[in-house]
Design a protein around this nucleic acid. Structure first.
Length: 186
DNA sequence: GCGTCGATGGCA
DNA sequence: GCCATCGACGCG
């Protein structure tokens, strides 16, 4: 397995959302590595995508999305859940991929089957907003020969996004038990 | 199994 | 006044 570099992240959000399925997310805390295999993601295409925060323009909150690919965009939702995103595309395009679910590795027992549960278990905090994922703290590993069977559906929780609410921009590994049965419709 | 609802805080 | 959510509760 090889650490993923800048070039991996510089693709458009749709490509990256698919490419991230099956890769390993590593959070290194006090010498211990928490590792998980990503199995569900969503693409947010930039300012024209009404479901994307970047459609609100460049603000203090969305600033990192407008920056270079491969950085973490982390924000708080519903007052208690942190969402972990990876900035995609070219600098200024403000595209991102939301990581929605993963499988814990190395015998680690944790429920990572949801974007809020994932950040809680992996101890991902808002203080890591803007963190460079091409580094040694929070990073990704590519798995040689990784060829997950991927299904494509509409995104979850974006009913407000008008003509964008039904866009098929959610991806998940059909063979993963971390994607619940009830989240497989459509 | 399903529908409904409250928690809780940052942001525009 | 919204939310890129979760978990608890009440069904029958």
């Amino acid at each position: 397995m090889k650490k993923l570099g800048r070039a991996f992240f510089r693709h458009d959000a749709i490509s990256l959302a698919k490419d991230l399925i099956g890769t390993i997310l590593v959070h290194r805390i006090r010498g211990r590595d928490y590792r998980a295999r990503i199995v569900e993601s969503e693409a947010y295409l930039g300012p024209r995508d009404l479901a994307s925060h970047s459609s609100k323009g460049r603000t203090k909150r969305t600033e990192v999305m407008f920056g270079p690919a491969g950085h973490a965009y982390i924000y708080l939702i519903y007052g208690m859940y942190k969402m972990f995103n990876v900035v995609a595309g070219k600098t200024g395009e403000a595209q991102a991929v939301l990581i929605r679910a993963a499988e814990p590795l190395d015998g680690w027992k944790a429920d990572l089957s949801g974007p809020g549960k994932l950040t809680r278990a992996l101890l991902i905090t808002r203080s890591q907003n803007g963190l460079d994922l091409v580094g040694n703290k929070l990073f990704l590993l590519g798995v040689p020969g990784n060829r997950p069977r991927i299904k494509r559906t509409k995104r979850i929780g974006v009913e407000y996004a008008k003509e964008w609410k039904d866009a098929l921009l959610r991806f998940y590994d059909v063979d993963s038990p971390a994607v619940s049965q009830r989240d497989r419709k459509e």
